[in-house]
Design a protein around this nucleic acid. Structure first.
Lengths: 253, 253
DNA sequence: TATTATTGTAACAAATTGATACAATAACAA
DNA sequence: TTGTTATTGTATCAATTTGTTACAATAATA
């Protein structure tokens, strides 16, 4: 984040950006059994899209992903991970109509050779946060920026639907591996301390299937990523569950 | 592979290519317990490098990877898979010296603003073949193109060493999943029919560790990817092993 | 007809996972 | 106080998978 963001609207030649290369973000949101995806709507269009953007000419790719997240959604300090590059030529044609509409809505000339209408290869990054803690704000290009239920996503621009699917596959495969990273930043998936039930609910929501309570507890406790704290008196008419927290980095082997 | 390859040497502006975007290939070669990597040496330099190249403006990314493989190594019909995008800005500086040397060796002007000296983001693809069946031929840019033992790789240009490491990690994690794909093309890792021992040797070489014979057999037979054929009379003073082949696609569930 | 090397598989132990059961409570209601 | 209820932590046992060892089968060769 070395450079100030270049206002995109007043950048008719795409100067300062790596040409032909974009980043798109699939930000999954979780809370109490719900899975959502962060989408934005371009002004005066009916198009839903993933937040995306371009890479500054002197910027690391991973830094660009983080910057784009901030600029387009207002969210910051979120753990992002690469998952795939989308580079079919057919993306180009698929992008023309929606991009022209977006530009027209913005009052931009949609000259045939405008840089935004050229072919782009897009690098996909994904993240997972608590959507009640990550309140997005639309940027200057977007009407809205908000959370949409995964089970009833609106249809998305271009190949963004494919991106979401591929990101979810990656997330499911690597949930164990990335859980702590996802949780260490702003908008963590779980509060500082949480119950085993809350953690299991997170797993079940992401994986889209029920897990056996006993086996889950055994697996998680066996992995030694958790530290048990005092009990939580929830007010419910039942035994109070223990609270846990992720073992601080320094204390792990 | 719609377009004829553009001779790179006589392309002083990089026309016809997506700017700033490259593909680099980590081609692993296996044979009888040895693991190798395909490297090339640029003319009149001491630089070893991964085969790489650029993407035509109307070409699918995955097609570009296959074309680059053919153009730079002469190998064709090999299953390639994306594994990571290398996009740190520091790659830029790291590339300057070697690229200048390569260009000078080629008699090219190394003007500061030459397109090859600009910043590139590189998409990594990897593959796994039998290096005795995949005989590479150097292209017009390279002195040599050949197989190098993984355990004593020469030091590589720019961040190509990091790429090899990352590719191997990916290969190890997804060997089960991609084995049949790697084997279905030219230069398959195993002959049409092979013994269980040969398959186990492949696994041990890629994973870099010994596996228990009994357990390996159980796992592989249990996965039902193999069909047992007649025995192989090897000439050795011992019981003849069965031959196997991968179950043809159509016969699998 | 032994000998040797290697293979296929059985056999058993050890470890992991799946399923069920049950004791231990917080809160609440009688 | 004393049930009642819901939920948690864990024990228990079964089922499955994995790790290890053992052994019979058997080509080539001496």
């Amino acid at each position: 984040m070395a450079e100030p963001p270049i206002p995109k609207v007043s950048n008719p030649t795409g100067q300062g950006f790596l040409p032909g290369l974009a980043i798109d973000l699939v930000i999954f949101g979780f809370h109490e059994g719900q899975l959502k995806v962060l989408l934005l709507e371009y002004q005066n269009t009916d198009l839903f899209a993933l937040p995306g953007g371009f890479i500054h000419t002197t910027e690391n790719l991973n830094d660009a992903a983080r910057r784009i997240l901030v600029e387009r959604t207002g969210l910051h300090d979120i753990y992002l991970e690469q998952f795939y590059v989308f580079g079919d030529y057919a993306r180009y044609d698929a992008a023309k109509a929606p991009m022209t509409a977006i530009m027209r809505a913005k009052g931009l000339t949609s000259a045939e050779d405008h840089w935004l209408l050229r072919r782009f290869v897009s690098i996909g990054y994904y993240a997972l946060v608590d959507f009640t803690k990550a309140i997005p704000t639309p940027d200057v290009l977007s009407d809205t920026c908000g959370w949409y239920d995964f089970v009833k996503l609106p249809s998305l621009m271009q190949d963004h639907g494919v991106m979401v699917q591929k990101a979810l596959e990656t997330l499911r495969i690597s949930l164990d591996h990335n859980l702590i990273s996802f949780n260490r930043w702003a908008a963590p998936l779980l509060p500082e301390t949480f119950t085993m039930g809350e953690l299991q609910n997170l797993y079940e929501t992401i994986l889209g299937q029920k897990l056996h309570r006993s086996g889950f507890q055994r697996k998680i406790l066996g992995s030694e990523i958790l530290e048990r704290l005092e009990k939580k008196y929830s007010g419910g008419a039942h035994k109070a569950p223990y609270l846990y927290r992720f073992t601080p980095e320094k204390a792990r082997s």
